[in-house]
Nucleic acid binder design. Structure first.
Lengths: 215, 215
DNA sequence: GCGAAACTTTGCACAGCCTGCAAGATCGCC
DNA sequence: GGCGATCTTGCAGGCTGTGCAAAGTTTCGC
């Protein structure tokens, strides 16, 4: 009764599913990278993965989703990490720390993510989808942040912090892809968060002993 | 020869076009506010505005665009203002200042914008579209910012500042709508930008004489 | 006023996305 | 091998969005 379903990872069926899923995702990325988002149909992607187009929609609710990847899983893990962080560290730093795991994962699948980001940059219509994917996570994140800093959920701060850090992370990730991963993603995210923590000062004025105002 | 085309605003033809456009946009907002994004078809919107559904697409490239409104025009004006700002004021403050005009316009069409934001909040699929609408503006904005602060266009700072301030503004606008305009949009944007400038500190610790570290 | 030119609206056909539904194939387990 | 669960597929159909050409409306010159 309790062990109705298969081991969920060892079975042939599961391996097949996983293979089909990645086949569809990579075929989609490859084709779109080469021909552009609008020039590739679901039918072509499905053909490249050797399944029917109907099956495509059994795996992904839309063409875009196959390209974006399973953002939800990453987001869920991120929110979990954030919830675990000790409450005495400032929220901004806590978010940076919680992102660590996500970043690691992205670095592991480096090639995949670089291609994905490249596709997103070249097809701006996808950028919104990336935001959308994070939107649901933002909801739960807002709650976690609100609880952390001890303000009501409908306060401005949690929403602001959430959307701003999301934007910063995305900017870093795109920059990462733009430079083909020359600098590590972790570095770029660090830089972005440091700039945020410093209040987004003009980069022209780095740190000229701020106690003394310039004449 | 030089005056081939009509006055562009006094003509009957133009008034008609404008009327049709706003009729479509408001019908779309009203219907979607009431029934939800997926429950309203272009055909229904067109019927409510007394035109064919084909005509709808002569005015708006997609259903979403009718709801979002002409973000591009606002963006263009914003970027122009930003370009005019004196170069000695920090970029973050310059952006806040340049937003003033946009904010004013939104306050003038208060009802329209509150409804629009309400619709966006209730149909999260639209939020990405809002970002997308600003995406092109972000491109030019990045250039302007880069020129301002004197760094190359592909530096991290301009992209970061642009996307972060965009996120902050959006958060403020949504909050504005969530509270039905109780506080002025300008106030909310000010608060958000002040928080940004302060480095997003936890709101619990307002300003406890930061020179002395707590034991 | 009248006719030509410019523009707008509309219908039609069509491609593509996406969703139910039901039949058939495949897999897991006994 | 055989049963039940799961996965794939085809089919029908609705909706979005686009190109094209016909019909209607406005503008302009005369």
């Amino acid at each position: 009764m309790t062990l109705d379903r298969p081991p969920a990872d060892g079975g042939l069926r599961d391996r097949k599913k996983r293979r089909t899923r990645t086949a569809l995702a990579t075929a989609a990325l490859r084709l779109v990278a080469e021909h552009g988002l609008d020039q590739v149909t679901v039918e072509e992607i499905s053909a490249a993965a050797d399944v029917s187009s109907r099956t495509f929609f059994n795996y992904f609710p839309s063409k875009d989703d196959a390209l974006i990847g399973d953002q939800a899983a990453l987001n869920a893990r991120f929110v979990a990490r954030l919830g675990e962080a000790p409450p005495d560290v400032p929220a901004l730093a806590a978010i940076r720390a919680a992102l660590g795991e996500v970043i690691e994962e992205m670095q592991e699948d480096r090639e995949l993510w670089l291609l994905r980001m490249d596709v997103v940059m070249r097809n701006p219509a996808l950028l919104p989808r990336l935001v959308a994917a994070g939107a649901e996570a933002e909801r739960s994140m807002i709650d976690v942040v609100a609880a952390r800093v001890g303000v009501p959920t409908d306060h401005v701060f949690p929403a602001l912090l959430t959307s701003v850090t999301g934007a910063a992370f995305r900017a870093a990730a795109l920059r990462w892809a733009a430079t083909a991963g020359a600098r590590s993603l972790a570095d770029l995210v660090d830089e972005a968060f440091d700039t945020l923590a410093a209040g987004l000062p003009n980069p022209g004025t780095p740190k000229p002993h701020p106690t003394r105002t310039p004449s």
